[in-house]
């Protein structure tokens, strides 16, 4: 978030973020998880070059091929397509379906939350009560309900997920903003006669951005699972394109024939979600200002 202001002198907070990076690097588990994420993200970006085979190329002879079969190193799916290539390409779809909604929700929810928190009073009341309505439902249930109403498809799935994540992000942004606003330095800034936009930019966003970003990042792990869940239920991506959720759904019947191959998309979902969780936790820990 461009919370810092372009100044001729060094931008505020550079030292702080360098410190966060240093403290993050000191956590071995978080670093390992970050490496896993890096591999997943890079392979998703470079799927076209990395994937050893065409993910849509079927092969009757290699249906549900075992792991280690030449040409199907991670086995074959129910149509004999290369699992490794499908996992890499599926990861691209899965990540997009998980990250894009959270990013959009971050913009919308962050804006609403900061507005509610800084304005307070009736504005806060109006915004936050609407958010409470969304918040009252479990996120996956809400995603399924909205996606069901909108109909299947990748875009509709992402819209549904976005709506799900606006409320929790807005709530965190609101509570952090309310806390920040009560600080004496914000009172001092108001006393200086500075316009509200300038106070928000220099004093509020600077201090709100960190915690809200970390929270949003942690929501990506929920989003990965929710996105896969939608596809699993047929409410997300439609075949032949596939994300991990849809792959898992398609391989469901093969669970008794070749459980290892059938479990692979599930493992990928688990691994990614877990890694996101650990990384966001590590960032949060690294961001704690020690007094």
């Amino acid at each position: 978030m461009s919370a810092t202001v372009a100044m001729p002198a060094k931008a505020p907070g550079t030292g702080y973020w360098r410190g966060v990076g240093r403290r993050f690097a000191r956590q071995p588990l978080a670093m390992a998880a970050a490496m896993v994420l890096l591999v997943v993200v890079l392979s998703a970006i470079g799927a076209d070059w990395i994937a050893p085979a065409d993910p849509f190329q079927t092969s009757v002879s290699r249906r549900l091929a075992a792991i280690g079969t030449p040409g199907r190193w991670l086995g074959g799916d129910e149509l004999g397509r290369d699992m490794l290539s499908r996992l890499i390409h599926g990861g691209r779809v899965s990540l997009a379906m998980a990250i894009v909604p959270v990013a959009v929700a971050l913009v919308i929810g962050g804006f609403l939350g900061v507005l509610a928190g800084y304005a307070g009073g009736a504005v806060n009341m109006a915004i936050m009560r609407v958010m409470d309505v969304f918040y009252a439902y479990p996120s996956i249930l809400l995603a399924v309900a909205i996606a069901g109403a909108l109909g299947p498809g990748m875009v509709n799935g992402m819209v549904a997920l976005t709506l799900v994540f606006v409320a929790p992000i807005a709530r965190v942004a609101e509570s952090v903003t309310t806390q920040v606003r009560a600080n004496d330095y914000v009172v001092a800034a108001r006393l200086s006669g500075a316009p509200t936009s300038m106070i928000l930019r220099r004093h509020v966003l600077n201090n709100v951005a960190g915690p809200v970003l970390v929270f949003a990042a942690s929501q990506v792990s929920v989003s990965i699972i929710a996105a896969s869940g939608l596809s699993f239920l047929g409410l997300g991506v439609s075949p032949p394109q596939a994300d991990w959720g849809l792959m898992l759904s398609a391989l469901r019947q093969a669970l008794y024939v070749n459980p290892w191959v059938a479990a692979l998309p599930g493992a990928a979902i688990f691994l990614c979600s877990m890694a996101v969780n650990i990384v966001s936790d590590g960032i949060r820990r690294a961001m704690e200002l020690r007094r």
Partner: peptide
């Protein structure tokens, strides 16, 4: 701990008011 913005240096905190004007 709340009297100064933790993300601003001493000079930035002081310069904020004049900049606002």
């Amino acid at each position: 701990h709340s009297s100064l913005n933790p993300r601003m240096t001493a000079a930035e905190s002081i310069a904020f008011g004049p900049e606002a004007h």
